[in-house]
């Protein structure tokens, strides 16, 4: 890294610290949430700087996009609580500056020093060695869908579970309309959605040999769907039993589970793909996992059980 890079990193770090501080301390909640979203976007830049483009894509779409949308839509349900003004923060928290800041600096310094000493041997060489038998070219995809596929299965499980848990709390408290509807948002949302679909398809296609793949693709698609909702589109899950949607939402998880069991039945271990079909199996899993992540992000965003009565009259409070 050259000097320019160093300076860039330093500026980025300062901006991130400032945003994180805003997100946790800012006087009003709206500002805190917006700071958090920008924080997510800048984190994506940091991930790129750290040569983790896959994470950058996921962070931008999920960390900033989906989480941000969730937070924003939660805001209008929460009592608008104005925090203290900045002047008062500086004055009232004198103790903070004497007590907290030095303690915090010491702790942070110690953590940094400890982490800097880590030898970090890494599994890069081992993973590269096993890549040939894995059925994919891109190492991160190989880890996600082959070496550590169990993690991925359970992770999609957590997402399904989150959807079930959120739905189990009853219908959403209010309409999923945005906090501050902008006149351009509906049009923007509808125009952008096809772009989201295209980007997602492209990421999915690239995934097996370059950064990209199921997670970023699913995340981008999910974020696009949420944008549509923000733009005022009606949720499509409407009937009482939710028609086939419950099955479709659980499909990604079910397909992965099925693949794992088939591996075991074929004489190998749980999740051991027969070598001949490994690359095809992973491709299928990737597509279903990506679609499923997109749909589940969308389902979770509904913030409650979609109900035929609940979303027809969208009164705001």
């Amino acid at each position: 890294m050259g000097l320019v890079g160093q300076v860039f990193d330093a500026l980025l770090a300062i901006a991130l610290v400032w945003l994180a501080w805003q997100a946790t301390r800012a006087a009003d909640l709206f500002r805190a949430v917006v700071s958090f979203i920008v924080f997510g976007l800048l984190m994506a830049v940091a991930w790129v700087r750290l040569e983790a483009p896959d994470i950058a894509l996921a962070e931008a779409a999920i960390g900033a996009g989906a989480t941000g949308a969730l937070l924003l839509s939660a805001l209008d349900r929460l009592a608008p609580r104005r925090g203290r003004s900045w002047a008062r923060v500086w004055r009232a928290d004198a103790r903070t500056w004497v007590l907290w800041v030095p303690a915090v600096m010491a702790l942070a310094g110690a953590l940094t020093a400890a982490a800097w000493q880590l030898p970090a041997p890494g599994l890069g060489a081992v993973a590269t060695g096993a890549l040939e038998q894995s059925g994919v070219d891109h190492a991160v995809t190989a880890v996600l869908l082959n070496f550590r596929a169990l993690d991925t299965l359970l992770e999609i499980g957590v997402l399904v579970l989150a959807a079930v848990a959120v739905w189990s709390m009853g219908p959403a408290p209010a309409a999923s309309a945005p906090v501050m509807p902008s006149p351009t948002l509906p049009m923007l949302g509808r125009t952008l959605f096809p772009v989201f679909v295209l980007v997602a398809a492209y990421l999915l296609w690239r995934g097996s040999h370059a950064p990209g793949g199921a997670f970023p693709a699913g995340a981008v698609l999910g974020a696009g769907g949420i944008l549509m909702l923000l733009a005022g589109a009606q949720p499509w899950i409407r009937s009482a039993e939710h028609g086939p949607w419950r099955a479709i939402l659980s499909a990604g998880f079910a397909v992965m589970l099925f693949a794992a069991i088939v591996g075991a039945l074929a004489g190998g271990a749980f999740f051991e793909y027969p070598a001949a079909i490994a690359s095809h199996a992973i491709l299928v899993l990737e597509v279903t996992a990506g679609m499923s992540i997109a749909l589940l992000l969308f389902a979770v965003y509904l913030r409650g059980e979609p109900h035929p009565a609940a979303d027809t009259d969208r009164q705001r409070c």
Binding site: F147, A269, F270
Partner: peptide, 13 residues
């Protein structure tokens, strides 16, 4: 021990 996916530790679970 059951190596999930047939991958031994430290790479696999």
């Amino acid at each position: 021990r059951h190596d999930v996916g047939g991958w031994e530790a430290p790479l696999g679970i």
